[in-house]
Design a protein around this nucleic acid. Structure first.
Length: 824
DNA sequence: GTAGGGTTAG
C-alpha cells in the first residue's frame, strides 16, 4: 500500500460505518459532503456483490456521477473477489466523465497480481499507456513490482521505457530498483543477465546511486544464471558496504547448494554467522533437503544442529529426509538416534519413516534390532503399521518365509525358532495383523509356489475376524488356477461373492486361462458367456493357447469352430489366434480349408501379417503346391509386407526340395541384400540341400562360411551336415564332425550312426563301420524295431558278420546281448 | 494389479 494514498484499510473503514444494511442503502441517503464517500462506497459494494450484476441498471447509471478515483480505490479494496473488483474497475473505466489515475490502476494491479491473473494484468499495463496516465516514480515502481511478482518481466521493461518516452514519468533509482527486481524474477535466465547489466549501465549514466535493493536483484540474476564469479563479485560489494542480510545470504547459499557446492555453501554460512547474519528457517529447510539429495548428510546434519541452536523447531519432513539419507548411507545408528530425537520433540513418526528405517537393514538381525528400538510406546495401530512395513521389507528382500513367521507371531501363533522374532514377541506386546498384513504375505507366497501356506493364512483371516479384500481373493484364485486347482478356485469365488466383492476381469481371466490350459473348449465357452454378462473380456492369449492345444491333438476343425463361437459371443480373435488355427488346419492336411479361412479373415478386415503368410507358404510347399506357394509369396510382397528370415528359409527349403539348388543359393544372396541375416536354419537347409544335390564341396564351404559369420551350428545342423557328408560318400569327414559334435556335448540321433555305418560299408571300410556300430550300441542308440533304419542296421550287421575282420566282434556283441538277436 | 500367444531346418 506504499503508493496507495488511502492508508486506512477499507475493511476497517466499512466497519466504522456499519451497521448499514447494504440492501437498504438508497441513493437518497447519500451524503452531499464532498469528503464523505462512505455511503457511496457501500452502495457500490452492495450493487456489485448482488447477483446478477447488470452494468446498464438505472441504479448504477445514477451512481456514475459520484465516481472519483478515491472512491474507486476504496471500493476496489473492499471486494473479496478479484473478478468483482475487475468488473467494477472496467465498468468505472467506461463511465462518462470519470478517468482512472495511477492509484486506481495500482490498486487493481495489486489485486490481480495477488490473484496471479496475468492476462488482465497485462491488459492493465497497456491501458495505463493508452490513457496517458502520468505517475510519480514511486507509483511506477509499485506497478512494476506487481508485474514482476507474477513473472511479467517483459511487460515491466516495455512499460518502463514507454512511460519514460511518453513523458508520463521520470523514473528514479527506486523505479529502477523495482524494475531490476522484476527482471530478477524472470524465468528466462540468459536474457535476464543482459537486461540487468543494461539497466545498471543506464542507472550509472544517469547518475543514480546503487543501494542494497539495486544489488540484491543483480545477485539473484547472476545466481540464477549460474554465473558464480559475477555473483561473488556482487556479493563482495554488498559485504563491503555492510548490507548483507539474511535474504542476501540465502540467495547465495541456495545458489551454491543448487550447483552442488555444499562445502562452499557451508563455509559461507559460518563466515556470515561471525557477522551475526543468520539463515532463516525456510532456507535452512531447503538447504537440508538439498544437501541430503547431494548425498551430503554430514553437512545436512550440521545445519540441522545449527537451526536448532537458533531456536527453530525441526518438523516431520526434515526428520524424514535426514533419516532417509542416513538409511541410504547405511548409518543405522545415527538414523535411530534421530528417531529418538523426534520423540523428544513429540513428533510422531509416519509410515514413510518406519519404512525407511526398516528397509535399511542389510542383515536379518538388524531388522529386529531396528524394530526393538522403535516399537516401544506405540499404540496397537502403530504397531500394526510398523509390522506391515517390516513385512513389506522382508518380502521385497525375498525373505518370504521370514515374513510368514512374523505374521504368525503377530497372530500370536508359533513362528518357529526365530531368535530375533522371539526377542520381539517376548515382552507380551499385543500385535494385531490387519487386512494389509495378510495381503502382503499372501501376495508374496502365491508366486513363490507356497499356495497352501497362503490358503491357510486365508483361513486364519476368517478365524480372527479379519476382512479379506479383492487383491487377496484375486491372488488366491490366480494361484489356484495356475496350479490347475480350478475346483478350489470356484470355492474361493463363491466366498468372494458372498462377502460382497464382485469378481473382476482379472478374476475371471485367471479361471478362463485354467480352462484353456486344460483344453476344455466347452467349459471355456461357458465361462466366456458369463464374462460377457459382466462386461469382462477374455484374454486372447488364453484362447490362443487353447486353439494351439486343440490343434496339437489334431482337432483343428474344432478349434476353428471355437473361434467362430467366440465371434458369435462378440469377441473377435486377432490374427495370432487365427494363425494358430491356420497352422492346425495345415497340420491335418486341410490346406484348402486353411486357404479359405485365410481369405475369410481378410474379407472381415483382418490384415494378415508375415507370420500368417509364412504358415500358408509352408503349408503349400509341404503339399508340393510350389506354384501357389510362390504366388502367395508374391501377394505378400505386393501388400508391402517385408519377408522375414523365416519366409526366406521357407523359400530356400522349397527350392532345395524341388531340386533347384541354385535358386536356393540365389535366395541366400537376396537375404543379405534385404538385410535379413541368415540364421542356423538357413544354413542347415542349404547345407542339406547341397549334399542332396551331390555338391559336398559347396556344402563344406557353406559350413565354413556359416562359422566364419559367427553362426554356431546346433545339434540339427551337425546332424544334417554329417548325414549329408555320408550321403556323398565322405564318411571320414563325417566322422570328424561327429567327434566335434560329441565334444560339444550334443547327442546325435541313431540315424546318424546308421548313415555312418552304411557309408563306411559302401566305402568297404568294415572295421570303421563296426567301430561306429559298436559306439551306437554302447550309447543305447540302436534303432527301434519299427524304425526304417532297423532293416539297414540288420543288413549292416549281416555284412559285418560275414567278413573275417569283424565277424568275431559281431558275434561277441550278439552273445553278450548288446545287439538284439537278429534273425539273419 | 493387467499381455503375449501364432511361422522355418534333420
Amino acid at each position: 500500500m506504499a503508493f496507495s494514498r488511502i492508508t486506512k484499510h477499507p475493511q476497517q473503514l466499512c466497519k466504522t460505518i456499519s451497521p448499514i444494511n447494504p440492501n437498504s442503502v438508497s441513493i437518497r441517503n447519500l451524503s452531499t459532503d464532498p469528503e464523505d464517500f462512505t455511503g457511496t462506497i457501500n452502495y457500490f459494494i452492495s450493487i456489485f456483490t448482488k447477483q446478477p450484476f447488470c452494468p446498464d441498471s438505472p441504479e448504477l447509471k445514477s451512481l456514475a456521477p459520484m465516481l472519483n478515483p478515491r472512491v474507486v480505490e476504496y471500493v476496489l479494496n473492499s471486494f473479496k473477489s478479484w473478478r468483482i473488483a475487475y468488473s467494477f474497475f472496467n465498468w468505472a473505466s467506461n463511465q462518462y466523465g470519470y478517468k482512472h489515475n495511477i492509484y486506481t490502476y495500482n490498486a487493481m494491479a495489486s489485486i490481480l497480481s495477488h490473484a496471479r491473473e496475468n492476462a488482465p494484468l497485462r491488459a492493465l499495463s497497456s491501458a495505463i499507456l493508452n490513457s496517458r496516465c502520468s505517475m510519480t516514480p514511486g507509483a511506477l515502481g509499485f506497478f512494476i513490482r506487481c508485474l514482476g511478482s507474477v513473472g511479467l518481466a517483459d511487460e515491466a521493461n516495455v512499460l518502463f521505457d514507454q512511460v519514460k518516452m511518453m513523458g508520463l514519468c521520470m523514473p528514479n533509482s527506486y523505479s529502477y530498483n523495482c524494475l531490476l527486481e522484476a527482471i530478477s524474477r524472470s524465468k528466462c535466465r540468459s536474457t535476464s543477465v543482459i537486461l540487468v547489466e543494461t539497466r545498471l549501465q543506464e542507472m550509472r549514466n544517469q547518475g543514480w546511486e546503487f543501494d542494497k535493493y539495486t544489488l540484491t536483484p543483480v545477485l539473484q540474476v547472476y545466481c540464477n544464471a549460474g554465473k558464480f564469479n559475477e555473483a561473488l563479485g556482487v556479493f563482495n560489494k554488498i559485504c563491503d558496504r555492510g548490507w548483507v542480510d539474511e535474504h542476501i545470504l540465502s540467495i547465495l547459499v541456495l545458489c551454491f547448494s543448487k550447483c552442488s557446492e555444499v562445502d562452499k555453501a557451508f563455509e559461507l554460512i559460518e563466515k556470515m554467522e561471525d557477522q551475526n547474519v543468520r539463515l532463516n528457517e525456510k532456507t535452512f529447510c531447503i538447504l537440508i533437503h538439498g544437501f541430503v539429495k547431494l548425498s551430503r548428510v554430514d553437512k545436512a546434519l550440521q545445519l540441522f544442529d545449527k537451526m536448532q541452536k537458533y531456536g527453530f523447531t525441526p518438523d516431520l519432513a526434515l526428520f524424514d529426509v535426514l533419516i532417509g539419507g542416513l538409511c541410504k548411507s547405511n548409518e543405522l545408528e545415527k538414523a535411530l538416534s534421530l528417531y529418538a530425537q523426534m520423540k523428544l520433540f513429540k513428533i510422531l513418526p509416519d509410515v514413510g519413516i518406519f519404512t525407511k528405517l526398516i528397509s535399511s537393514f542389510s542383515e536379518e538381525g538388524e531388522l529386529t534390532y531396528v524394530l526393538d528400538k522403535i516399537h516401544e510406546d506405540m499404540d496397537l495401530e502403530g504397531l500394526t503399521m510398523l509390522c506391515n512395513s517390516c513385512l513389506n521389507s522382508l518380502v521385497n528382500s525375498g525373505l518370504i518365509d521370514k515374513a510368514h513367521c512374523l505374521l504368525q507371531g503377530m497372530m500370536g501363533k508359533a513362528y518357529g525358532d526365530n531368535v530375533e522374532l522371539h526377542k520381539l514377541f517376548q515382552d507380551k506386546k499385543v500385535f494385531a495383523p490387519n487386512t494389509a498384513s495378510f495381503a502382503i504375505v499372501i501376495k508374496a507366497l502365491v508366486p513363490a509356489g507356497k499356495l497352501d501356506l497362503a490358503l491357510s493364512l486365508f483361513q486364519d483371516m476368517a478365524q480372527i475376524g479379519c476382512s479379506r479384500n479383492l487383491v487377496i481373493y484375486n491372488n488366491l484364485i490366480d494361484g489356484l488356477c495356475k496350479s490347475d486347482r480350478l475346483e478350489e478356485s470356484y470355492e474361493i469365488l463363491r466366498e468372494m461373492k458372498e462377502s460382497g466383492i464382485e469378481p473382476t476381469q482379472f478374476t475371471h481371466n485367471a479361471m478362463f486361462g485354467c480352462l484353456c490350459r486344460r483344453g476344455d473348449a466347452s467349459g471355456a465357452l461357458d465361462l466366456v458367456k458369463k464374462m460377457r454378462i459382466h462386461g469382462h473380456e477374455p484374454w486372447i492369449k488364453h484362447y490362443t493357447f487353447l486353439v494351439r492345444k486343440m490343434c496339437k491333438n489334431g482337432k483343428a476343425t474344432q478349434a476353428c469352430k471355437f473361434l467362430a463361437d467366440m465371434v458369435q459371443e462378440g469377441f473377435l480373435p486377432d490374427i495370432i489366434a487365427y494363425s494358430a488355427s491356420l497352422s492346425g488346419l495345415i497340420e491335418i492336411q486341410e490346406v484348402d480349408q486353411a486357404l479359405k479361412l485365410f481369405r475369410d479373415i481378410c474379407a472381415r478386415g483382418h490384415c494378415p501379417d508375415v507370420v500368417a503368410y509364412n504358415i500358408l507358404i509352408s503349408g503349400l510347399f509341404k503339399t508340393q503346391r510350389i506354384t501357389e506357394a510362390h504366388t502367395i509369396f508374391e501377394e505378400m510382397v505386393m501388400k508391402g509386407l517385408v519377408p522375414s528370415v523365416v519366409t526366406y528359409n521357407l523359400l530356400i527349403d522349397g527350392w532345395c526340395k524341388s531340386g533347384c539348388i541354385d535358386e536356393a543359393l540365389h535366395c541366400l544372396s537376396r537375404m543379405s541384400a534385404n538385410e535379413r541375416e541368415p540364421n542356423v536354419i538357413t544354413y542347415t537347409t542349404l547345407i542339406g540341400g547341397l549334399c542332396n544335390a551331390g555338391r559336398p564341396d559347396d556344402a563344406v564351404m557353406l559350413w565354413t562360411e556359416m562359422r566364419r559369420r559367427g553362426c554356431t551350428p546346433n545339434r540339427v545342423a551337425f546332424m544334417a551336415f554329417i548325414h549329408g557328408l555320408c550321403q556323398c560318400g565322405r564318411p571320414n569327414a563325417a566322422l570328424v564332425h561327429l567327434r566335434e559334435m560329441e565334444d560339444n556335448e550334443m547327442e546325435p540321433d541313431s540315424f546318424i550312426y546308421v548313415a555312418l555305418v552304411s557309408a563306411f560299408l559302401a566305402d568297404v571300410k568294415l572295421p570303421l563301420a563296426f567301430e561306429v556300430l559298436k559306439e551306437m550300441v554302447d550309447k543305447g542308440k540302436f534303432p527301434d524295431l519299427l524304425d526304417k533304419n532297423y532293416i539297414i542296421v540288420r543288413d549292416a550287421i549281416l555284412k559285418l558278420s560275414k567278413d573275417a575282420r569283424t565277424s568275431s566282434s559281431v558275434r561277441s556283441l550278439i552273445s553278450n546281448g548288446s545287439i538284439p538277436s537278429i534273425t539273419l
